[in-house]
Deep mutational scan, measured.
Amino acid sequence: MDVFMKGLSKAKEGVVAAAEKTKQGVAEAAGKTKEGVLYVGSKTKEGVVHGVATVAEKTKEQVTNVGGAVVTGVTAVAQKTVEGAGSIAAATGFVKKDQLGKNEEGAPQEGILEDMPVDPDNEAYEMPSEEGYQDYEPEA
């Protein structure tokens, strides 16, 4: 019985440690998101679009440190934060509304985080759909 109880105690310690790591990862992701939003706020009209992409990228980098179902929630929060940063930029006159959601080359930025393969159960990952990809044929 002692062996059984000791095993359960060790398992509990492992769960607590994993929860603490997840909590730490979420806190880091939130900190990076805040950094990115402050970065966007300090940019001029020309830099705002690039700044919004930076927020998304920093958040995406930190999301990889967070495991399990938390990833889905962090990704949703990050996307809403990026959308909010863009709205703030438009409201303050840093950028025109028609410039939001495009990178410096004018290509749409939507789907940055949505296409990231995420499995809350950590069982399997699927690649994003290939609808947006084109076949590449090298020139002879």
Rank of each mutant, 00 (worst) to 15 (best):
Glu105Trp: 01
Asp115Val: 11
Ala11Gly: 05
Glu131Lys: 09
Ile88Gly: 05
Thr54Lys: 04
Gly67Pro: 03
Val63Glu: 01
Asp121Asn: 04
Glu83Tyr: 02
Gln24Leu: 04
Gly84Trp: 03
Glu61Ser: 04
Ala69Met: 06
Lys6Gly: 02
Gln134Ser: 10
Gly68Trp: 11
Lys60Pro: 03
Gln24Pro: 00
Ala17Val: 08
Thr81Asn: 05
Lys32Met: 10
Met1Pro: 00
Glu123Ala: 03
Thr33Asn: 00
Glu110Asn: 12
Asp115Gly: 03
Val66Glu: 01
Glu28Ile: 09
Val70His: 03
Phe94Glu: 11
Ala30Ser: 14
Asp135His: 06
Phe94Trp: 15
Ser42Tyr: 12
Gln79Leu: 15
Pro128Glu: 12
Val52Ile: 12
Ser87Ala: 10
Lys96Thr: 12
Lys21Leu: 13
Ala78Val: 10
Val16Asp: 01
Ile112Asp: 09
Ser42Leu: 08
His50Pro: 06
Glu104Lys: 10
Glu20Leu: 15
Gly67Leu: 14
Tyr133Arg: 05
Glu131Arg: 10
Gly14Thr: 14
Met1Ile: 00
Ala140Gly: 06
His50Ile: 11
Thr81Ala: 15
Glu130Val: 13
Gly111Lys: 15
Lys102Pro: 15
Asp2Ser: 03
Met5His: 00
Val71Met: 04
Leu113Tyr: 06
Met1Tyr: 00
Lys80Arg: 09
Ala17His: 04
Glu83Ala: 03
Phe4Leu: 09
Lys60His: 14
Gly93Glu: 05
Gly93Trp: 13
Val49His: 09
Val95Thr: 13
Gln99Val: 11
Ala29Asn: 00
Val63Ile: 13
Met5Ala: 07
Gly84Asn: 14
Glu110Ala: 15
Glu139Arg: 14
Ala91Gly: 11
Ile112Ser: 02
Asp119Trp: 07
Val71Ile: 03
Phe4Gly: 00
Val77Glu: 07
Glu57Gly: 03
Gly67Met: 12
Val49Ser: 05
Glu46Ala: 02
Met127Gln: 06
Val71Pro: 06
Thr81Gly: 07
Ala56Arg: 14
Ala53Phe: 02
Glu114Leu: 13
Gln109Leu: 03
Leu113Met: 07
Ala53Met: 15
Glu131Ala: 09
Glu83Phe: 11
Gly25His: 03
Val74Pro: 02
Glu35Asp: 13
Val66Asn: 03
Gln79Phe: 12
Lys96Glu: 12
Asn122Ile: 03
Gly93Ser: 14
Ile88Asn: 05
Val74Glu: 02
Asn122Val: 05
Gln134Thr: 06
Glu35Phe: 08
Glu61Met: 10
Gly68His: 06
Met5Lys: 15
Ala19Thr: 06
Lys102Ser: 10
Ala76Tyr: 15
Lys97Thr: 03
Glu110Lys: 11
Phe94Met: 02
Ala124Leu: 11
Lys32Tyr: 14
Ala29Gln: 04
Glu110Val: 05
Lys58Ser: 06
Lys96Pro: 10
Glu137Gly: 09
Gln62Tyr: 06
Asn122Trp: 07
Ala11Ser: 01
Leu113Asp: 13
Lys43Thr: 08
Ala29Leu: 08
Gln79Tyr: 14
Ala78Pro: 02
Gln99Ser: 12
Gly73Asn: 13
Gly106Thr: 15
Thr75Lys: 08
Met116Cys: 10
Val15Leu: 13
Ala29Glu: 00
Thr64Cys: 03
Pro117His: 10
Gly47Val: 12
Lys58Tyr: 07
Ser129Tyr: 08
Thr22Cys: 04
Phe4Gln: 00
Gly84Asp: 11
